[in-house]
C-alpha cells in the first residue's frame, strides 16, 4: 500500500509487480465475471431451466403431492407465474390466470404453478382465497426460484417451459386477457 523502499535504482521488484497485477486483475476480473454471469442468466429462452423445489401452500397440491420438483413435470408444458399479494398488477391478471387454468386443468398436458415472491402467509392466503385460485401455489422460499428464473422487472412475471424443460417464453407484467395466456401456451405446443 505504501512505498517500497528497497533497490532504489531498479524500480519495483518483479514479485511486487506480480502481486499488484494479480490483485488488480483479480478484482476487475471478479466484477467482470459477475457481469458476464448476470448477462447470461441461468434460465434463458431456448435453454433448459435449472431444477427447483416447490413446497405448496396449505390446501394446494399436485397429483396428491405436497411437494415436488420442476423436473417431475417433464413431458408437460409448465406455466410458472410469479406473483405477490402486495402487487397490484398481479390482481389484474389473477382472474384470467384462474380462468385459463380451468381450460387446461383437465387436459393434463399443461400445468400452472404459482410462485409467491416474498410475501406473508396471511397475505398470500387472502389473495388466493379472494381470486379462488385452484392451481398449485408455493412460496418462493429464500427467493430461490425467482433468482433461477432471473426476474427482471418485478412481479408479476410468467415463464412458459416446454415439455423438454426448456424455457420458451417470458411474459413481463400482467396478462391482459385469457386469450393472451392461451395464445402464449399454444405457441409452445
Amino acid at each position: 500500500m505504501t512505498e517500497e523502499t528497497s533497490n532504489a535504482k531498479h524500480g519495483v521488484p518483479i514479485w511486487t509487480q506480480v502481486v499488484i497485477w494479480i490483485f488488480v486483475v483479480g478484482l476487475l476480473g471478479l466484477v467482470a465475471f459477475g457481469l458476464r454471469r448476470a448477462q447470461n442468466p441461468q434460465a434463458a429462452i431456448g435453454k433448459p431451466v435449472p431444477d427447483f423445489n416447490l413446497v405448496f401452500y396449505e390446501g394446494y397440491e399436485y397429483n396428491g403431492k405436497k411437494e415436488m420438483k420442476l423436473s417431475d413435470l417433464q413431458g408437460k408444458i409448465v406455466v410458472v407465474n410469479i406473483w405477490a399479494s402486495w402487487c397490484k398488477p398481479c390482481e389484474q391478471e389473477a382472474p384470467d390466470l384462474q380462468a385459463a387454468w380451468q381450460i387446461y386443468k383437465d387436459g393434463n398436458d399443461v400445468v400452472f404453478v404459482g410462485v409467491d415472491y416474498v410475501d406473508t402467509p396471511a397475505g398470500a392466503n387472502e389473495y388466493l382465497t379472494k381470486f379462488n385460485i385452484s392451481f398449485p401455489n408455493a412460496p418462493d422460499l429464500k427467493s430461490n426460484i425467482s433468482s433461477i428464473l432471473n426476474r427482471q422487472m418485478g412481479v408479476p412475471e410468467t415463464y412458459i417451459i416446454d415439455r423438454k424443460g426448456i424455457l420458451q417464453n417470458i411474459k413481463i407484467g400482467p396478462f391482459s386477457s385469457v386469450d393472451e395466456i392461451k395464445s402464449m401456451i399454444q405457441s409452445v405446443q
Binding site: L28, V31, A32, G34, L35, R37, A38, Q39, N150, R151, Q152
Partner: peptide
C-alpha cells in the same frame, strides 16, 4: 441488483 447492471449497456462500458 446485479440485473440492473447487466441489462443496461452502460454497465459493461463503465467497467
Amino acid at each position: 441488483s446485479v440485473h440492473a447492471f447487466a441489462n443496461s449497456p452502460i454497465g459493461p462500458l463503465f467497467m
